[in-house]
């Protein structure tokens, strides 16, 4: 057993030296110019209509609810859904209403009908509140992926990562114009390697598990329902 008092920095430094020395002894002078060519599979180009259909069908297969809507109807759709779920509160990203006119209008329209809670607090002293008093959340999304029915969230100080994780119902606004064919092409198009934030999350449905006898159950730890508000106009 390692001596209990051994400082972990000492352990780590020694281990680092040994591991790297062993590995370098094997591949030290390797010529990386001679590595074989890697060929990617070329997926056929699809039309925007096909991509949207694929996006919706994949999400629905994964038990997400996709509601095509317009900027004008967005608030109405959210209210209807909340009513059918018997929910009267909605947590949303702070400053969402400052992002565009239509966001402001959505928030305005919701304000009079449900209790809106902006996520304007640090999680540190508010974990209980977040876990127990926030039945639903509304977030924006950065873009999405057709092939796998995936929504890309790029959390920041206004839309913290727990916004899309802790409340049992997650409404997410998705703009069909920001739909990419697949993950590889998305990374390439947006050059992600230069600008990854603290956390990026790809979401492709409500939380689920098949850990008990391969039987699918939704709402394992994260949201039980993912409601996608798809803007396509």
């Amino acid at each position: 057993m390692t001596n209990k008092t051994t400082d972990i920095n000492v352990i780590s430094r020694r281990a680092r030296g040994n591991i790297l020395a062993k590995l370098k002894a094997e591949v030290g002078g390797a010529d990386y110019g001679k590595l074989p060519q890697e060929t990617a599979y070329v997926y056929p180009e699809c039309s925007q209509t096909d991509n949207i259909a694929q996006f919706i069908s994949e999400l629905e297969k994964n038990h997400a609810q996709v509601i095509p809507t317009t900027k004008e109807q967005m608030a109405e759709v959210i209210l209807e859904q909340l009513a059918s779920l018997n929910i009267t509160q909605l947590l949303y990203g702070e400053k969402l209403d400052e992002q565009s006119d239509y966001h402001r209008e959505v928030i305005e329209a919701l304000k009079s009908k449900v209790t809106l809670q902006p996520y304007d607090f640090s999680i540190d002293n508010n974990k209980n509140r977040l876990f127990n008093e926030c039945p639903a959340a509304l977030s924006n999304s950065r873009c999405s992926i057709a092939a796998t029915g995936t929504i890309v969230l790029w959390p920041d100080e206004n839309e913290p990562r727990s916004l899309s994780l802790v409340p049992p119902v997650h409404f997410v606004m998705v703009d069909a114009h920001k739909l990419h064919a697949d993950f590889a092409r998305l990374i390439e198009a947006e050059q992600w390697q230069d600008k990854l934030p603290t956390n990026v999350v790809l979401i492709s449905g409500p939380s689920k598990t098949a850990d008990i006898q391969q039987t699918l159950a939704y709402g394992a730890h994260g949201p039980k329902a993912l409601i996608v508000l798809l803007l396509n106009s």
Binding site: G149, E157, P160, L196, T198, N199, V200, L202, I203, G222
Partner: peptide, 24 residues
């Protein structure tokens, strides 16, 4: 693994909570 086109979540972590961020 499970025949899924993608998992429900793909979580990419590049740093601890930054100044101004509310969680993490």
């Amino acid at each position: 693994a499970t025949g899924q086109a993608i998992s429900t979540y793909f979580n990419m972590i590049s740093s601890p909570r930054k100044q101004g961020e509310k969680d993490g």
